[in-house]
Simulated scan of single mutants.
Amino acid sequence: MNYNELADNIKIWGQELGFQKVGITDIDLSDHEAQLQRWLDAGYHGEMDWMARHGMMRARPAELHPGTIRVISVRMDYLPPEAQFASNLSDPNQAYISRYSLGRDYHKLIRNQLKKLGQKIEQEVGQLGYRPFVDSAPILERPLAQKAGLGWAGKHSLILDKEAGSWFFLGELLVDIPLPIDLPQTNQCGKCTACMTSCPTNAIVEEGVIDARLCISYLTIEFNGIIPENLRSKMGNRIYGCDDCQLVCPWNREADVTTQEAFHRKDIFQDASLISLFQWNEPDFLKNMEGSAIRRIGHQQWLRNIAVALGNAPFSESIIKVLESRLGISNVLDIHIHWALSEQRNKHKNLERNTKLERLVRIIGKGLPRDA
């Protein structure tokens, strides 16, 4: 078997299957084990217990799939056309949803394509032990992607590529054949710290290290409890995920939009006002989110996230009414609704106070001499 030729063919087949880049690496992640343990010991994984439960298996692919000696790492771009980052974030009455989740759930799509890639390789080699993974197993996909030459780890911990920025998904195909490995890219971040300084909650505690407990993506997606009160106002209108650290990254300025129509914005999100999304009942939520990654957080967590955003929105009688209409569903949701109602009422008081001051200034101004 000419493994060099096979590796070249694998990259061609991968692109034919919709992957923008394919790289190959060995399975040695021993250099990352100490860092992973420090991250876990610091509690930065929050309530994602599975992170600690699998221990160092995340850094040992062969324990996940015995016989593995190589990992084929793939990239699939997801940036949708007309992403509307600035206009969406700047309108506090509209919901901001992380751009990776505006379309179809990527897990099944990429896994199916990886499976097809494995089957294609098997046709060539006769017998192949392989297993595809897409963000669904205890495996350090970013270090593997870095070793495979797909990019370097940015200070926000995401993989960056000088041609594609960071707007892409990763996937892995574990195989048991001795393919030649690719060289990693050189880190190109330099002294730039834009991602660190732009994080709304200061979740990037040091270069490449994220405290998930502070991260809006974790709080809105992985965490189903009571969001710390000191973080709620910092979440703004972000109801599912957060893209801020990517938005300011210079390498993302020239990133191409995705060629996968499945990742384009769902029609239901074309006009995503907070009030309209908050009025969905559970059947509405399940129907509208069919095929979406958002569906897995469930209706109550969806309402919880929007309640926080409504609390951060400008005062509106309509917001007061819609918040009150959702009281009594659950204790966790009630806590966030009562906070949002308090925020709205405080804004109303401030608005009334400012209106009275403006009226008083106008009255006083009218009584003053023209040359005063």
Rank of each mutant, 00 (worst) to 15 (best):
N4S: 09
N4E: 14
N4G: 13
E5V: 05
E5F: 10
D8F: 13
N9P: 03
I10W: 08
I10P: 07
W13N: 10
G14E: 12
F19L: 04
D26Y: 14
D26L: 01
L29V: 11
H32G: 06
A34W: 09
Q35A: 15
Q35F: 06
W39F: 11
H45M: 13
H45V: 08
G46T: 03
G46D: 08
E47H: 01
E47T: 15
D49H: 11
W50T: 10
A52F: 08
G55V: 05
M56G: 03
A59W: 07
P61L: 12
A62I: 02
E63S: 12
L64H: 12
L64F: 01
H65F: 13
G67S: 06
T68S: 05
R70M: 05
V74F: 08
Y78W: 09
S87N: 09
N93T: 14
N93D: 04
I97T: 14
I97P: 00
I97C: 01
Y100C: 13
Y100R: 02
R104W: 11
R104Q: 14
D105V: 00
Y106A: 04
I110V: 14
K120P: 03
G129P: 06
Y130S: 02
F133Y: 15
A137P: 04
L144I: 14
A148S: 08
A148R: 00
A148C: 03
A153W: 02
K155A: 04
E163F: 01
S166V: 11
F169T: 03
E172S: 04
L173G: 02
I177E: 01
I177T: 09
L183W: 11
N187I: 11
C195F: 03
S198A: 06
A203N: 02
I204G: 05
E206L: 12
E207C: 07
C215H: 02
L219M: 10
T220M: 07
I226C: 12
L231Q: 14
R232S: 00
Y240H: 04
Y240N: 06
C242Y: 01
D244I: 14
C245L: 00
C249R: 00
P250F: 02
D256W: 03
T259V: 09
E261G: 07
A262Q: 05
F263A: 05
K266Q: 13
D267S: 13
I268F: 10
F269S: 09
F269C: 02
A272T: 02
L277G: 04
P283D: 07
L286A: 01
N288V: 10
M289L: 11
S292L: 03
S292A: 02
A293D: 11
R296P: 11
Q300S: 10
Q300M: 10
Q301S: 10
L303A: 04
G311F: 15
A313S: 15
P314F: 04
V322R: 00
L327K: 03
I329G: 03
V332P: 01
L333C: 13
D334H: 07
I337E: 08
H338N: 15
W339K: 04
S342N: 15
K347D: 09
K347R: 15
N350Q: 13
E352Q: 15
E352R: 15
R353V: 08
K356Q: 15
V361L: 09
V361D: 08
K366W: 12
G367S: 09
L368R: 13
